[in-house]
Write a protein that binds this DNA or RNA. Structure first.
Lengths: 235, 235
DNA sequence: ATAGTCAAGATTTTCGAAACCACAGCGGCC
DNA sequence: GGCCGCTGTGGTTTCGAAAATCTTGACTAT
């Protein structure tokens, strides 16, 4: 369209190239919401989004529909879209639900996991621990690569669970929780050894101790709530 | 647009009027998938959908995006959309996940429910039992009103649960299961007293017996699997 | 002053056509 | 004969603008 027509499509996020403009819009808006470019509760205006994404209204609209389904964006008919607000109540509910559901998935994975499952956990834990959590340039922001690896670690823990439906829901909840994780960095004051928390989960999982693994996972997830909930609106 | 401009918008499904063409397209396509107008695995062509919905491509596309997010429809880039196939494996996974998740929601509701919760269960159970399950005209099809009331009964059971996230997921899973329920009628041969199954759940819930209620719910959900799974592709 | 009405501007929603892609059928080349 | 590339066809995806809708603010009547 303008200049080199194709070269603006294959932008990647998390290693996955965008296949269509709709995909790309989804990635861009998602990223914009995560980084706070669009604040929680802020209205999303089409003109701005079109400029940001460099495309027409149709793919933007498709992306928004997806984001609504994922719970990152809300809509009211004929009154546009807005970034879903964050709140203490939502976070607490989210964390409790994740602990319950992902805890079950973890137990199941411990039951079924083979050597390959174990190996993937060890490898993803290792590469995760090799990276600092905060971005060196701006320590209030999360390092993109760290987040990718963190995600991979948690995915690997439950990968051996045999319920695709459960895994899919876990992924969706993890996405919703990402936003809280992002901003929690700005508020964490006390010392927190995230690496140790991860190692504890992995150790219990490989030792095939379901109760212990579940506990470690719960502790890990509850840490974020602890730091964050006092700073969030009660709702 | 044509004749009386407004009158073609407020079509209702389940008592909820469509607010936009996108909503209406979603309702129409959903209904078409449930009733088998579009069979499992069948490709969804835009021309046909536009004719069926009586509108242009944009709202149809929006509806499809929503249906994909709900798992009723699948898509492959540049190769269109297709109705998500039904399979034995998917059904079994779905049912197990529902039993686990909805079982927990039920326990929680039993813990928290007040008089209003009890009253709603009794009332929705009553109106449900007053209606035949099969459509009188074509006994292989499910009565629309019955399905609405059935849904309301199950919703009322867990309504007192205090986790919006969990309730939302339960609703989504219930929607996915609807398709299996619809076709199960055509295969059910042996006698099955659905009303008794419902009554058993309600009784245990009102008696505040979590384990018993959970069991009754599990039994109820497993019945459908029992009748259906031999007729479904293994996958 | 207050509520109700209306017009203008801003924004979302929908349309119809253009651009684009996958696939099948055909013809040339090794 | 088999393989490769071209091209036409049937479909999806994206565009740019028109239509519908909401918001705002001024104006009028009570």
């Amino acid at each position: 369209m303008f200049g080199s027509a194709k070269s603006d499509i294959p932008k990647k996020v998390g290693g996955v190239p965008a296949k269509s403009r709709g995909d790309k819009a989804w990635q861009i808006l998602r990223e914009a919401i995560f980084t706070g470019r669009f604040a929680p509760g802020a209205p999303l205006r089409f003109q701005e989004m079109q400029t940001l994404c460099g495309m027409s209204v149709s793919p933007v609209r498709e992306a928004l529909t997806r984001l609504v389904a994922e719970g990152l964006v809300e809509t009211e008919h004929n009154r546009g879209y807005r970034v879903t607000p964050l709140s203490r109540g939502d976070l607490e509910d989210l964390v409790r639900t994740r602990i319950r559901l992902e805890g079950w998935a973890l137990e199941r994975a411990i039951e079924l996991g083979d050597e390959r499952w174990e190996a993937r956990i060890m490898s993803s834990l290792h590469v995760l621990s090799r990276l600092p959590r905060r971005r060196s340039a701006d320590p209030r922001l999360m390092d993109e690569e760290w987040e990718r690896r963190h995600n991979d670690f948690h995915t690997s823990l439950i990968a051996a669970c045999d319920s695709p439906t459960t895994l899919q829901i876990c992924r969706a909840l993890s996405d919703r929780a990402d936003r809280y994780r992002q901003i929690s960095l700005a508020f964490e004051t006390g010392p927190r050894d995230v690496d140790a928390e991860h190692a504890a989960i992995a150790e219990a999982a490989l030792a095939r101790d379901p109760a212990k693994a579940r506990n470690a996972l719960a502790t890990h997830y509850e840490q974020t709530t602890r730091y964050l909930s006092t700073y969030l609106a009660a709702d």
